[in-house]
């Protein structure tokens, strides 16, 4: 029981600081989440982390609920609740405060500067996320090929995301069954 409590405290320590580092969408922080969950705390292997990422992507709602799933895997329901509150809570207060202050018109120049200034940082962080996930990905060149084809399909078509994930899964299962 003490162990669970310790893990919950550690989960809060991982996700609460990342709350304010979440810029340009939840994808940006995943490289750092992986570093802390796999390399620092050794809660799971790199391959298990990629699997967790895949399961989170099959679920509905915000992609950042990956934190909830990691919390559950690390410390059960208490961990799920802790990680969710830690990641979503701090910025919720911040946004509420700003919504309250900027009820009428957001301060245009600051909003523009924030967006334009944080976007390149977010781009670098999302690229790092892709790099880290690719490194942990099992399935060799077949899997990397699926990632590249999936990127092109997402950019060029309006393919359904669940269909895309199911197609990737089916292909790798087929490869594993026929070419062991």
């Amino acid at each position: 029981m003490n162990d669970v409590l310790e893990r919950c405290v550690a989960l809060a320590g991982v996700f609460a600081p990342l709350s304010i580092a979440t810029i340009g969408g939840g994808q940006a922080i995943i490289a750092d989440v992986q570093r802390q969950v796999v390399d620092v705390h050794h809660w799971m292997t790199a391959a298990q982390f990629v699997n967790t990422f895949a399961i989170a992507r099959m679920a509905p709602g915000p992609g950042s609920l990956l934190a909830t799933l990691i919390g559950w895997q690390v410390a059960g329901i208490g961990g799920a609740v802790t990680a969710t509150i830690a990641l979503f809570g701090p910025t919720a207060f911040l946004v509420y405060g700003v919504a309250h202050l900027w009820r009428r018109h957001p301060e245009a120049r600051w909003a523009l500067a924030l967006e334009a200034g944080l976007r390149p940082v977010a781009a670098g962080m999302i690229l790092a996320t892709v790099y880290v996930l690719m490194r942990g990905l099992d399935g060799g060149w077949w899997a990397r090929g699926v990632a590249v084809v999936s990127t092109v399909l997402v950019l060029r078509t309006r393919i359904n995301v669940l269909l895309l994930l199911a197609a990737g899964a089916t292909l790798l299962v087929a490869v594993a069954s026929f070419a062991p």
Binding site: Q27, I30, V50, N51, F53, A54, I55, R57, M58, I126, T129, V130, L133, M134, L137, D138, G139, A143, R144, G145, V146, A147, V148, V149, S150, T151, V152, L153, V154, L155, V161, L164, L165, A166, A167, G168, A169, T170, L171, L172, V173, V175, A176, S177
Partner: peptide
């Protein structure tokens, strides 16, 4: 294998 395939497709979402 299925999760690796789904993860690969999901990484495509992030890369896009």
């Amino acid at each position: 294998a299925a999760l690796a395939g789904a993860a690969a497709a999901a990484i495509g979402l992030s890369l896009a």
